[in-house]
Amino acid sequence: MYIKKILWAVALIGLVIFAVIAYYIYGAMFEPNTKFNNETAYIYVPTNANYNDVRDQLVPLLEDIDKFDALASQKKYTTNIKAGRFAISKGMNNNDIINSIRSKNLPIKIAFNNQNSLADLAGRISTQIEADSLSLYKAMTDESFLRENEFSKATALGMYLPNSYEFFWNTSAEGFRDKMLLEYNRFWTESRKIKAKKLKLKPNEVITLASIVHEESKQADEQPRVAGVYLNRLRIGMALQADPTLKFAAYQLPKYQNTVIRRVLNIHKEIDSPYNTYKNTGLPPGLIAMPDLSAIKAVLNPEKHSYLYFAADAKRIGYHKFAKTLGQHNNNAREYQKYLSSQGINR
């Protein structure tokens, strides 16, 4: 009789212990464990991060980090950290949180445009993905990569077509570069290559010319006409005489560092540079800036006309007046020069 009481007591204690453990496990796994007010919070887990790195981000987001620790250890997440961007929804329990940050790396949308150099682009991208600007620039300028894909440092910027793209946050510098090459090759469809060939231009040359068109006019509806002028000049062997190339050449010189050239002068036309399209015929060695897609498409689909000249329109700022003869052009140019002087713009 006494032994039975002892056995019943032991069994009862065992049930109580089991119930406590079960309650703790249930709480650790299935009770909501978030304390943020937004519907979703995100954590960014770097490559080669350890559990403490993840835990530091979770502490301000969770009600009970100790219960999370216990379940993370039980589910072996503490020794199996995955890099990436992960979402935690308001009201999630620990089990769901672990499943999310272990296997649901979320892509992000990145975007870029108007970057004047590979260094600028590397800096822009480094604010959006894990890779830092130095590793991105190194990948972008890798000589073996450029040579294998028929780019040079002067034309490499043209590989990065401004748009929005989907990437994983933990994409490496080489991974970003390689995907952008795929996007570049995807852009150059057979029909676009045929159009470029009819213009007697290679894809790199199309984008180089597009960079000049884009710097001349930001107006998408005018860019095909501007492209037509430059293509007419190329066709007859006339120098492009593009003011934006003079500015680009000037900005490479110490004299013009940290300055803004608002008015191109005769002194700029004397700069000794392959980008001086007043002194040199044909296209410059590479891009002078990153063109919008509209400018690239304008070069591939230029307006057919007989214009050889254009000057900024003082009455429609941002647009230009076009001319077929030098006399007409000089009149247009004088009108705009007069406008600049009236505005106090002398250099």
Rank of each mutant, 00 (worst) to 15 (best):
I3V: 13
L7T: 11
W8K: 11
A9M: 10
A11N: 07
L12S: 14
I13T: 05
V16M: 09
F18S: 07
A19I: 02
V20P: 02
I21E: 02
Y24D: 15
Y24V: 15
Y24A: 15
I25M: 12
I25D: 09
Y26I: 10
Y26C: 11
F30H: 14
F30T: 14
E31S: 14
N33I: 09
E39N: 08
T40N: 11
A41C: 06
Y42E: 06
Y42C: 04
I43M: 03
V45Q: 11
P46C: 09
N50Q: 14
Q57G: 14
D64C: 07
K67T: 12
A70Y: 14
L71W: 00
A72F: 05
Q74S: 15
N80H: 13
K82F: 01
A83G: 14
G84V: 03
F86G: 01
K90G: 10
I97R: 08
I97P: 08
N99Q: 11
S100M: 13
S100F: 04
I101K: 00
K104T: 13
N105T: 05
L106K: 15
I110P: 05
S117V: 11
L118I: 01
L118W: 00
D120L: 09
G123P: 08
Q128D: 06
T141V: 02
T141W: 06
D142T: 06
E143H: 05
R147Q: 14
N149A: 04
S152G: 04
S152H: 05
A156T: 01
M159Y: 01
L161C: 02
P162H: 00
N163K: 05
F167N: 04
F168Q: 14
W169K: 07
N170T: 08
T171E: 12
S172Y: 09
A173N: 00
E174C: 05
G175K: 07
F176C: 04
D178G: 11
K179C: 01
K179Y: 15
E183I: 04
R186L: 02
K193W: 01
K193Y: 06
I194R: 08
I194L: 05
A196Y: 00
L199H: 03
P203H: 04
E205W: 00
T208P: 00
S211G: 06
I212M: 09
K218S: 15
D221K: 09
D221F: 08
E222L: 05
R225P: 04
Y230Q: 09
R233F: 08
R235D: 13
I236V: 09
A239V: 13
Q241R: 07
D243E: 07
P244S: 04
T245M: 04
T245A: 09
L246V: 13
I261C: 06
K269L: 07
N276T: 02
N280H: 13
I288K: 03
D292G: 12
D292W: 00
I296P: 03
A298R: 05
P302A: 13
F310R: 02
K315L: 15
R316L: 10
Y319G: 12
F322V: 07
A323N: 02
A323K: 04
T325C: 10
T325Y: 06
H329T: 07
N332E: 02
A333R: 11
R334D: 12
K338W: 15
L340K: 03
S342N: 15
G344S: 08
